[in-house]
Nucleic acid binder design. Sequence first.
DNA 1: ACCTGAACACCGTTCAAGT
DNA 2: ACCTGAACACCGTTCAAGT
Lengths: 187, 187
Amino acid sequence: MGRPAQISRPAVLTAALAVADERGLDALTMQAVAARLGVTAMALYRHVRDKDDLLDGLVEALLTEFPPPDPGLPWRERLAGTARAIRASAARHPAVFPLLLRRPAGTEQARRVRDGVLDALREAGLNDERAARAERLISTAVLGYAASEAAGRFDHHPQDVRDADFAHLLAVIGACVDPEGSRSCRG
Amino acid sequence: MGRPAQISRPAVLTAALAVADERGLDALTMQAVAARLGVTAMALYRHVRDKDDLLDGLVEALLTEFPPPDPGLPWRERLAGTARAIRASAARHPAVFPLLLRRPAGTEQARRVRDGVLDALREAGLNDERAARAERLISTAVLGYAASEAAGRFDHHPQDVRDADFAHLLAVIGACVDPEGSRSCRG
DNA sequence: ACCTGAACACCGTTCAAGT
DNA sequence: ACCTGAACACCGTTCAAGT
């Protein structure tokens, strides 16, 4: 007993993310992750329950990358900053990012990101219920845009068009949340 | 020669969609599709190039389900009708639907749906460039919401909350496109 | 022309066995 | 306690062979 562990769950997830980033989701096999760690595939099962658990861990790892917005900034910039950080994460991890839209949003990191957005929306003057609804729609729109871009759905548009699209999305969100905004957006 | 075909590409796609609807994307194997057609897996390869081609065909089949809006209706209702049809398709095919966000939007059916939206936006008074941008953002938001719902990301919210969320999304889209809407939404 | 049998390389996963 | 070897059931895909 007491044989020292060669690998750990964080090490497994880091290796898995690297494999997915470099070679895509199809190449993300237990054997590929193990090989990168210098270990056999069966050794991973002590640190992740199965491959689905590994994918869940990757989603959680991605969420960790979304930095908490500086609380000193006004709500509008906190919102835009988080959205831009999410899009940047999608660009770094195009293979894994789309999984964010396919997995439940109830994990610790997911709650942390959501609470940051909710705080900003309440500071903008929305009550709890409207803030919760706006958070769901904003998150979905931002995740959807970033996932589309990562998956190559907009590959036929040049980068500057996509940048302008995203800027426009942020502008719409800002306008809809703004206390001075149109009535329909806040209903 | 001249042995009559037992199966066809449409038959393969119909069987594949049924398997995915009933048992999920993981159960969508070449063998399962073949079994449903009373044929061996190898027979499918005469009608689809490989499994990826089969998935592309499913995406195209899903797009076919989005009905062309009645051109007699005002633009606002055409837009809302298309969005609701897309959401309904996601509810019917929750396993396959998320693939729409992962595959390029350049196929024939994808263009047909897009052109319907573009027509509505131009009728709302947007010029070509703004209509194209609005189409990309609206499509992404609607697909993102429907895909999230289909994948179970909102399962912890009851149906009526999700219905209200979607209605709110439609309202925001309508307000942003409306000629009388706020300035930021149309920039 | 269309489908099948047999085969190949590869998966995820288990379990008893080694250290 | 942690990792491995061997094994199992399953995948997608090929190719020559049947009809």
